[in-house]
């Protein structure tokens, strides 16, 4: 007799040995099935502090669950699983497992900031989404996706030259993702561009591709920016470390 209400049980909560004999009794399959309970047995009191240590998460403790953020959310309109109010609540109580379940959608925040605009208590939900995404990344819960590599390539170019060059970004992205540099769609795209763009424009694009201009007086700006970002990250790591140690000490 299989479980009738199986759709009401998460698959990962079902324990079952396909074939099992115990004390001489064959209890294979559903005869030995057991279910892990789904109740929440504790809070992680320090999790909120960890998220607050990320840029954007500072005001998460102010939330009173009015739901304005979710109601106004651009993403929620297309995917009702995208629920900033809910994740903020989980953050406050430290229900990490629940947050991790949504790791594949939290990063979908489009940063339209409607939530932050509407929030009556200045929680800045958009920032919390960012903080959560970063935390998930730091803890290794999110796999490195092509979009990450794209961001990386984009940032590296900005750092070097203070600007981006589309063709370089695409080429760099292809290299990082081990894609062929010549792709059918790109060839078609380029051919058509050549056909329709004025010559002067094309010439400038070509020159830029070959010589890669930098933003005027960019100088050490990129390096300084990188140092700043690294310093920020180190400080955040330090704060998190302290939060963890405090927890262990307790």
């Amino acid at each position: 007799m299989a479980i009738h209400e199986k759709s009401l049980i998460d698959a990962d909560r079902i324990m079952e040995h396909d074939s099992l004999v115990v004390d001489g009794v064959d209890v294979s399959g559903h005869w030995n099935t057991m279910i892990k309970p789904r109740y929440i047995a504790d809070y992680d009191d320090d999790f909120e502090k960890i998220i607050q240590s990320y840029g954007g998460g500072e005001n998460v403790h102010r939330c009173w669950q009015c739901g304005s953020c979710t109601n106004s959310c651009t993403m929620y309109a297309v995917n009702t699983d995208f629920n900033p109010r809910y994740w903020i609540y989980l953050t406050r109580l430290g229900l990490k497992d629940e947050i991790i379940k949504d790791k594949d959608i939290i990063w979908q925040c489009v940063s339209c900031n409607k939530c932050t605009n509407i929030c009556p208590k200045d929680v800045r939900p958009e920032g919390v989404m960012k903080a959560l995404a970063h935390w998930l990344e730091d803890e290794g819960h999110t796999e490195v996706k092509p979009s990450h590599l794209f961001d990386e390539e984009f940032w590296e170019q900005v750092e070097r030259t203070g600007r981006i060059e589309d063709a370089h970004v695409i080429m760099g992205f292809f290299k990082k993702t081990k894609q062929p540099l010549i792709q059918e769609w790109l060839t078609a795209f380029t051919t058509r561009m050549i056909k329709h763009l004025p010559f002067a424009h094309l010439f400038r694009m070509g020159m830029n591709f070959v010589f890669t201009p930098r933003t005027r007086s960019w100088g050490r700006t990129g390096k300084v920016l990188r140092e700043f970002v690294e310093q920020q990250e180190a400080e955040a790591r330090e704060r998190r470390q302290q939060a963890r140690q405090a927890k262990e000490a307790a």
């Binding site: 209400e5 009401l8 049980i9 998460d10 909560r13 279910i35 309970p37 789904r38 109740y39």
Partner: peptide
Amino acid sequence: TCPSAHFYDY
């Protein structure tokens, strides 16, 4: 207090 809610999404 529901025993079923402890195991089912009920």
